[in-house]
Amino acid sequence: MELHFLGTGAGVPSKQRNTTAIALKFLNDYKGALWLFDCGEATQHQMLYTSLKLSKLERIFITHLHGDHIYGLPGVLGSRSFQGGKSPLTVYGPKGIDKFIKATLSISETHLHYPLKVVEVEDGMSIDLKSHTVTVKELEHAIQSFGYRMKEKKKPGSLLVDRLKEIGVKPGPAYAALKKGERVTLDDGRILNGEDFVGPKKPGKTVVILGDTRVCKNAEVLAENADILVHEATFMESDRKIAYEYFHSTTVDAARIANRANVSKLILTHISSRYQGEQSNLLLKEARKVFKNTFLASDLDIFTF
């Protein structure tokens, strides 16, 4: 999987950071499928600088309805259609997202040539998908804001190739069938059960992406033992009072959540435009004093895992 940060700013864009949007690209088994988390203004423009394709976009998860997280959504939906997208697309988000989409598409007379489904999420909702289970929990922000925990389902174990070779089974079509757990009849009449030649199932990865939030218990619950936690860090620790007043987090807030939740990697985003140049490095240093394996996302950064 890859995380593509299309926008890492907060509130308003700056020359260094566009408004919020993160793409999760699935590789190998998932054939390049794409999920999008938030869709700030100019998200589709940012995508032009990447290898991402709107035709691969399957799901969009909106954390909350502030403009810097949704003003790019009508454009993305329309361009996906204009570029020949035909496959279904599902948008998840807080109550009101359906009304926003319908109003903007209707007023602009934008007609989609693919099935669009809109799901308004609630606190505690669990979305069971073929490859993942997505857990939704409400955070603490000025308006309703959610975090999403993507837990990849267990994958089939590796084929025990050495064991097959020991009993004289050469590579070929039988290997593919056995890896699927199927029963195979060999040319010599022997019947093999695929379950006997596949190792234990492999645990999937867990990625957590939070919307705007103050420090709250649900952020920690969602992040528990995650491989990657994406957490807002709108303000430096010296601006803690402002952060609290505006329902946001500091770098240290995010790092403390990562520590308590035992995550493997923390990625900071949603950085206020007041921090430019060298100040961005200070944000990272500040967080790393609390949680060493912290990274500060910049626009168009890609994290592979």
Rank of each mutant, 00 (worst) to 15 (best):
G85V: 12
T213M: 09
K86M: 11
I267H: 09
Y175W: 15
H111M: 09
I191S: 06
I191T: 14
G11S: 10
H141W: 05
L283D: 08
P200I: 02
E2Y: 09
L164S: 12
V252G: 02
F82S: 04
E237M: 06
I107N: 04
D301A: 12
M150W: 15
Y92V: 04
F5G: 01
D68C: 00
Q83C: 07
P94M: 07
V12N: 07
A254Y: 06
I242A: 12
L34C: 09
V119D: 01
E152H: 01
Q16I: 11
E122F: 02
S280R: 15
G78N: 14
S108P: 02
K102Y: 09
R288S: 12
Y49T: 00
K95Q: 12
R240K: 14
E245T: 09
F197Y: 15
E152Y: 01
S158I: 04
V136K: 09
E152R: 11
F146C: 09
E286P: 06
V198T: 11
V136Q: 04
T110G: 03
A287L: 08
D239S: 03
S145E: 03
E58R: 15
T20S: 08
H248Q: 15
T250L: 07
S264V: 07
K25D: 00
Y175L: 05
L77R: 05
L77W: 02
H132R: 13
P94Q: 10
S87I: 07
E152I: 01
N193A: 11
T213C: 13
